[in-house]
Amino acid sequence: MATAIKKKKSLVKNLVRFSVNGTAVELEIGTLPHQVETAHTLAHTLRETLGLVGTKVTCDNGACGSCTVLMDGKAVLSCMTLTVECQGRSITTIEGLADPETGRLDPLQQSFIDHTAFQCGFCTPGMIMSAKALLADNPSPTEADVKEALSGNFCRCISHYQVLRAVMATAQGGE
């Protein structure tokens, strides 16, 4: 009897709830194909379970910043964050930056376009999310602040210089 109650309780508990880009997400935890495994990273869940493939995975090892998303407004590496850790959190991905009503791009996205702040573009979503977190925290960063905030974002094409300009142009009092 006691076991049955415990089992039932655990079934109820086996959910992880968080929001992604303002939409509530409720996922079962378990090992069945439709469930989220405890070993699943947020990057995996975003891409494979929720279909939000704008978040890119480069190293899958916390070294390159490609998979950066916002958790309660702070930049986190989604490849180093377990989905089960996201209970009650608010996640924002690159898909969540444009205005959902009008489709209007976030000023940072627009600035990346205006400054051609990308080449192959694979690292760009992560760059934009890192910069977004910085600007939310510090709307008037110096160039050194931007470099520091983006120092974990890997880019091989060397879009860095154009990215710096794009971020500084968006910052208050920048450029």
Partner: peptide
């Protein structure tokens, strides 16, 4: 300087890379 044709896709994460 002209806008890259794929610019909006790149900055919104909708560019379709292989994976």
């Amino acid at each position: 300087p002209t806008r890259r044709k794929d610019a909006v896709e790149v900055v919104t994460g909708t560019t379709q890379y292989l994976d």
